[in-house]
Deep mutational scan, measured.
Amino acid sequence: SSQSQGISSSSTSTMPNSSQSSHSSSGTLSSLETVSTQELYSIPEDQEPEDQEPEEPTPAPWARLWALQDGFANLECVNDNYWFGRDKSCEYCFDEPLLKRTDKYRTYSKKHFRIFREVGPKNSYIAYIEDHSGNGTFVNTELVGKGKRRPLNNNSEIALSLSRNKVFVFFDLTVDDQSVYPKALRDEYIMSKTLGSGACGEVKLAFERKTCKKVAIKIISKRKFAIGSAREADPALNVETEIEILKKLNHPCIIKIKNFFDAEDYYIVLELMEGGELFDKVVGNKRLKEATCKLYFYQMLLAVQYLHENGIIHRDLKPENVLLSSQEEDCLIKITDFGHSKILGETSLMRTLCGTPTYLAPEVLVSVGTAGYNRAVDCWSLGVILFICLSGYPPFSEHRTQVSLKDQITSGKYNFIPEVWAEVSEKALDLVKKLLVVDPKARFTTEEALRHPWLQDEDMKRKFQDLLSEENESTALPQVLAQPSTSRKRPREGEAEGAETTKRPAVCAAVL
């Protein structure tokens, strides 16, 4: 046999249950609850290399294929790409003598399909299967379609040439079993990697079954959420508030809700932002270029202005709740996480202390139980975000031990490091100062900020419009641009040419 590394010779191994799959997660993409704000000051410096380099560890398999027929071997997927077919160049070659004697062998292509993985959001991997055969590759009886790919989820059954000719079961060793999710959700989405997690739940990458488009699904544990919100009269209202707010909003710089499922837990389906959180971008770069800050901040102002015009105060604006559309420097941003939002009543007064301390406005800290506050709290938070983006460190921090965090904020005395700000323009610093004003009545509004000289930049605004146009074009394009080929190089076993392929839609398939 010419099988590559990772293939075992026996096809009769006992199949494990899916609970053996491991679970991976990374930083929070968007969480309903406010958790302790991640610290920006503690960015690790590059460490000196050791005298002796450690040995390379043996790579762990990321997936496993269990053979369902004699003549096929099990495969431990270690590499990122595997070709399957009769050709000797394939990493998994159909060359077992037992297999060659079967009637089905002649229906398999020289290069029938490939399984591979690509880097997705949060640097996690996504597994795909890609059909290159004349007679078809099927996943859970659905045709992939020649020249098309679809994501592979845990426990997928792979069939060759005929939908009933099941050859492998695919085990993704990095994700959960699909069966743990409600059927209504599974009918519409293929669940994938964990993108982030918080005290009350997690955010998962998923794929729409009909279109193969990526989405983010925010899962909120009702049990954990009820415990964490025990002081509230009705904890469920917080989730329902977020859903109702998101459904009503329609702005290019605000995250869109696509679906909602109320089962044992809450499942909020949101558009996916491939670039992750602004927080991670700031930490990764230490600070952002001023031109990049301007492009992002302009969009934040437009989003918050839209919220305020619609009578909504976000109340928890922070870099973790600003998501980026891509890994590119120039990209769209979207505001997310409306769990603490407040729809303005007639009095415009709110007395609930919520939000993240580092970003809270002075009037929030001094008015607990005594007075109210209004939309100006969001403008203060925007000032803190702009400060961080321009400088790479927070204006107020618990680690300045000589003054408490509350006193720093209520006095408006931010930590100004001259040598850092020497590289920032006077106009940018002036806008920061106009937003970090203790008196909410004297603080800049979103309208005033948008009129500030720093943002009178036609090149930046043109760039934003171009990015918007690109997004609109990409969302308007159909996901499947061509029909699967019906040509046949070899006959199917026991049926006429093209008899099955043309009847089945290529579900969740995307043209390369």
Rank of each mutant, 00 (worst) to 15 (best):
E242L: 05
I243S: 11
L249T: 02
H251V: 02
H251K: 11
P252Q: 05
P252H: 09
C253N: 07
K256L: 13
K258D: 06
K258Q: 06
N259H: 04
D262K: 14
D262T: 14
Y266M: 13
V269L: 15
L270Q: 04
E271D: 14
E271A: 14
L272C: 12
M273V: 05
E274T: 09
G275P: 14
G276T: 02
E277H: 01
L278N: 02
V283I: 06
G284S: 09
L288P: 07
A291V: 11
T292K: 14
K294S: 14
K294R: 08
Y298R: 10
Q299A: 08
M300K: 07
L302C: 11
L302S: 08
A303V: 00
V304T: 10
V304W: 03
Q305M: 00
L307W: 01
N310S: 05
N310P: 03
I312P: 01
H314Q: 06
R315F: 00
L317V: 10
E320C: 05
N321L: 04
V322C: 07
L323Q: 02
L323C: 15
S325M: 10
E328P: 02
D330E: 07
L332P: 12
I333F: 02
K334F: 00
I335D: 00
H340T: 01
H340Q: 13
L344A: 05
L344M: 13
G345R: 11
E346H: 15
S348A: 15
S348P: 15
M350G: 12
M350Y: 01
T352S: 14
C354E: 03
L360D: 02
L360V: 12
L360W: 14
A361M: 05
P362A: 00
V364S: 03
L365K: 01
V368F: 12
V368G: 10
T370S: 08
A371L: 06
G372R: 11
N374L: 01
A376Q: 07
W380L: 02
S381H: 07
L386Q: 06
I388A: 07
P394L: 10
F396L: 01
S397T: 09
H399Q: 11
T410I: 10
G412Y: 09
N415A: 05
I417K: 05
L429V: 09
L429G: 10
K433W: 14
K434P: 00
D439E: 04
P440G: 12
P440N: 09
K441N: 12
R443H: 04
R443K: 00
A449G: 11
L455W: 01
D457W: 02
D459N: 11
D459L: 00
R462T: 12
K463H: 00
K463N: 08
D466G: 15
T475P: 15
R488Y: 13
A496P: 10
K503C: 12
A509T: 13
V511F: 12
